[in-house]
Structure formats: structure tokens, C-alpha cells
């Protein structure tokens, strides 16, 4: 599959602290800024892969429950215990109504993502695909640095960039 009109983005999350929604607001802004049209079509899909989304907030919610009791724990960040929360947050920010998928793990998910981009494009479900690799380092969760990087692929573009999915894999390999 030849990929057309690629827009790459990357954001350092190694020192990310503060409100989780503010962090992802910034990620959404970074993605919007890299895309020449800025406004995404409704047929935009998000394919996000992550080894650890939800982990920090899962542990945090249960810590809170242990401290205050399950009936008094603060549920504010409960949605962020789900690995799917970052991708659905980005969909909301970017008004992306296409398939919204979160894969747990790393770049081993790329063949699956490629297969789905091809399928969803053939089914006319997507005009734009956003592939995101998210690794958190919220409050020092990961010893490795945290980052959010990815590529916006404009499926229906009228010219081709000479890139293949293998080359895209190389991009994700370079952290």
C-alpha cells in the first residue's frame, strides 16, 4: 500500500505533569498543527498503540480507594484508567467520527493497523487516518521517556508521497 500525504508529529511527554486533559489538549493541538487543512473530516480514524495508557490512573484510583475507602474515592480520573481514553479524547478534540481503536503494546501492532487502514479505506469509512504511538511518563511512570508521536495519513489525497508502511515502521522505531 502506498501512503499518501503524510504529516508527521511528535510531542515529548517525558516531563508531563499537571492535568491529564491539558496534556492531551496539547497533543491534539500538535496533531492539528501538523495537518495542512487543520480541520479534520468526520471520516477521520484514530489508530493508537500504547504499552501503558491507563496504568498510572488505574493505580492512582485504587490508591485513592485504599486511602479513603471505595465509597469515597475520587472518580474524576476514572475514564483515564481505560487505555482507550487518550484515543477517544483525541477523537473528541479533532471531531473524528471514524473507527477509533486502541491497541495495547508497541510497533508489533503496525501490521494490524495497516490491514485496518486498507480495509476502512476500501469500505469508504475514512478519508484521514491518524496513527499514534503513545508512551506515558506521567509523574515518572516509565523509566524510559514519555512521548506521543505519529502520522496523519490523508487517504484521498491527489498526489502520492513515496512512502511505504515499512518506511513508516522505521519512523516509529526511531524514538
Amino acid at each position: 500500500m502506498k501512503l499518501q500525504n503524510l504529516y508527521f508529529f511528535q510531542q515529548d511527554l517525558s516531563d508531563a505533569e499537571g492535568d491529564i486533559t491539558e496534556i492531551f489538549d496539547e497533543v491534539a493541538e500538535t496533531i492539528s498543527a501538523c495537518y495542512s487543512k487543520n480541520t479534520f473530516p468526520a471520516k477521520t480514524a484514530i489508530y493508537l498503540f500504547t504499552p501503558d495508557a491507563g496504568v498510572y490512573h488505574s493505580v492512582g484510583l485504587w490508591e485513592n480507594a485504599l486511602e479513603h475507602g471505595p465509597d469515597f474515592a475520587n472518580p474524576r480520573d476514572f475514564p483515564w484508567t481505560l487505555a482507550s481514553c487518550p484515543a477517544s479524547f483525541l477523537a473528541r478534540s479533532l471531531k473524528a467520527h471514524g473507527p477509533n481503536t486502541t491497541f495495547i503494546g508497541g510497533i508489533e501492532n503496525l501490521p494490524q493497523i495497516e490491514e485496518w487502514i486498507q480495509l476502512h479505506a476500501a469500505q469508504d469509512l475514512i478519508e484521514v487516518a491518524i496513527v499514534v504511538h503513545l508512551q506515558n511518563n506521567f509523574y515518572g511512570l516509565n523509566p524510559a521517556t514519555g512521548f506521543c508521536k505519529g502520522v496523519v495519513i490523508s487517504i484521498g489525497a491527489d498526489y502520492e508521497v513515496n512512502a511505504s508502511f515499512e518506511e513508516l515502521t522505521q519512523f516509529f522505531l526511531k524514538s
Partner: peptide
């Protein structure tokens, strides 16, 4: 190949749908 879907309460459907497509495509 493996794929793990963290799509919350819809995750089972995602896994079955993806597996079916992988069989369909010959992967």
C-alpha cells in the same frame, strides 16, 4: 500475529472483527 485491543467495553467485538479480517485477507 497477535493484536490486543484496549477498546474498553467494545473490545471483544474488535478482536473478533480483526481476526476475521486477518483470515479473510490470508494474513
Amino acid at each position: 500475529p497477535t493484536a490486543v485491543f484496549g477498546t474498553a467495553c467494545a473490545a471483544g467485538n474488535y478482536a473478533i472483527g480483526a481476526a476475521a479480517q486477518a483470515v479473510r485477507s490470508g494474513r
